[in-house]
Simulated scan of single mutants.
Amino acid sequence: MNNLLNQFEGTYVYTNGSKVFTITLVKRIKQYNSSYYEDLIIGEYQYSINGIIVQNTMPNLNVVYNNQYIKHSIAGNYTLSNNNRRWKCPQCSPNERRLSARIRDESTERSADFLMRRTVVNGQQVLQVKIDDVLPDLETANPPDFSLPLGEFTMIKQ
């Protein structure tokens, strides 16, 4: 993937009042997905409200699973162009690529799109994120709400 995934590696934090959402992303190369080998960004998160940890999957970051994509809380490697309908980016440079992954809410087992753009804001490296399109739970009549932050926000690289 021409080292595209390298720029997304790191730990990022988003704070909104008393809510703190921290993610750590790492690149894994030549990961077997039951059909072929691929490079992949995997990650885990910690989400706290009022200083109380609501969810923490960070201990799983270094666990090596048979299928990294399925087991890690954050995983993906699909690139988005500037005009991708899922998240348009008129401010992106013409050759800039963003990343699409999936994030799983461990408390509800629901997943959502996790779209990322690495950039610099006021001299600080940041990850602009869009979490949306929570996947429907077809097996449950009234599935629990997705409990992680949704929408667009900026996470600061630590």
Rank of each mutant, 00 (worst) to 15 (best):
D137T: 10
I52R: 15
V13H: 01
D133E: 13
N142G: 04
S93D: 12
T15C: 05
V121F: 07
L40W: 08
K19N: 15
I70M: 07
Q31Y: 09
D132K: 06
N77T: 04
M116E: 00
K27S: 11
K88V: 10
S48F: 03
P90C: 09
P144W: 00
S100D: 07
S18D: 14
S93C: 07
D105P: 03
P144G: 08
M58V: 01
N60G: 09
T11R: 03
D105G: 11
E152R: 01
G151R: 03
R102S: 08
K88N: 11
N83K: 11
W87C: 09
T11L: 01
P136S: 03
L135K: 12
N16E: 08
L25P: 00
Y69R: 14
R98Q: 10
Y69E: 10
Q124D: 10
L150S: 00
K130C: 07
D105N: 08
T79P: 15
R110Q: 14
S93R: 15
C92P: 07
R85T: 11
Q124H: 11
T24D: 00
L40R: 09
V20G: 05
G123H: 04
K19F: 06
S93T: 15
N3P: 10
N67K: 10
S73N: 11
E9A: 13
E38V: 11
R97N: 10
G43D: 02
D145N: 12
S147R: 08
R104V: 11
N2S: 12
I42K: 11
D113V: 06
P149Q: 05
S100G: 15
K19M: 14
Q91L: 12
K130E: 03
E106V: 08
K71E: 13
E9K: 14
F153W: 01
Y14D: 06
I52C: 12
E38D: 13
P136W: 07
Q128V: 06
T154F: 00
V64W: 08
R117G: 01
Y37E: 14
H72S: 08
P94T: 06
R98M: 13
W87F: 06
Y37H: 14
P136T: 02
